[in-house]
Amino acid sequence: LTATAGLTLLVSLLVYAPATGWTRPASLVAAAAGFVSLVLFAVVERRATDPLMPVRLFRHRGLVLATAMAALFSATFSSLPYFLTLYFQAVRGYDAFVTGLCFLVPAVVVAAGTQAGPPAVARFGARRLLVGGLAAGAVGALALVPAVAADGSYLSLLPGIVLVSLGQGSAWTALWIAAASGVAPGDQGIASGIASTSLQVGGAVGLALLVAAASGIGQQSSASDLLDGIRTALFAMAGALALGAVAALATRRATAP
């Protein structure tokens, strides 16, 4: 209850405060209540005899890295379809059916990346694959920036879409291997649950932050404002993925193969 309340209040704050104001009473109450709820969650977990999220598991570097990378993965890769949908429908004027067709290519490439993941892990290792996937996603997001234009074509988007999708599929496989590495068999379910929760929270918080950063996005926005906002979000995604790749590269492997 305390974790759910804290995270819900945090996401609500990030969604509504940029439009309504950070210093309004509702924003301040949400921030304070969310912070208190998350502190209570930490206190409860430290004192519980059978905690939902044992603190001892965070001694495993691999799990800590995977938890952070899961949040980053969802905040970036999983947020991209939102901004591409805005571009396809609000800027290019595509209907829902054509917009759906535009997502066939990334879906196929992501699936191919996940299938190629296990052999790649066996050859290069999970950490290298994770670094490579995040780096490919960063380059792909940057490649999308100039392609997102009022008169741009779908073909001009394909190089960036393919790179992002390959990175997403590759990083997905390495992410879950990293979460399980070095964790005792009896703790595998808890470790997976922690990484899964981080994935869901990262998606909610990440999208809220990206929408807040892309201040030109709104119900009454013009096509020019939308394009500026989408490009800002793409730059933010690329930067976050690049930082994630550097962090993963700098983190030593927690356990031997």
Rank of each mutant, 00 (worst) to 15 (best):
G137W: 03
T114W: 02
A147S: 08
A143T: 12
A48D: 11
P119F: 12
C102P: 03
L101V: 11
Y82F: 15
P159V: 05
G137M: 04
L80G: 02
V145P: 06
T67Q: 12
A71I: 05
P54D: 11
R123H: 11
L84C: 02
A48I: 08
A136W: 03
A68M: 13
A75C: 11
V121R: 12
R56S: 14
P119T: 12
A136P: 07
Y87E: 04
A70P: 09
R59D: 09
Y87F: 13
G100E: 10
A143W: 05
Y154Q: 09
V98E: 15
V109F: 00
L144K: 08
P81R: 07
D50H: 15
V139H: 02
G137Y: 04
G113T: 06
P146C: 02
A66S: 13
R123N: 06
A150Y: 14
C102I: 01
L157K: 05
F103R: 00
G62S: 15
P159L: 04
A96E: 10
V145D: 08
S74E: 06
T114Y: 02
L57Q: 10
C102Y: 11
S153M: 07
T67A: 14
Y87T: 04
V55E: 14
A70T: 10
M53D: 09
A75H: 08
A135G: 12
L101N: 07
P81L: 07
A136Q: 05
P119Y: 12
C102S: 13
L129K: 06
A90L: 15
C102Q: 13
S153Y: 10
A138W: 00
A71R: 05
V55M: 15
D95A: 09
F97D: 15
L65T: 10
R127T: 13
Y82K: 11
Y94I: 02
V98S: 15
P106E: 01
V55N: 14
A122V: 02
V148S: 06
T76G: 02
A75Y: 09
Y94Q: 11
V108M: 11
A150N: 15
A116N: 04
L134D: 06
A66H: 06
Y94C: 12
A116I: 11
V64D: 13
A136T: 12
P119W: 12
G100Q: 10
D151R: 14
A120V: 14
A111N: 01
G132A: 13
L158M: 14
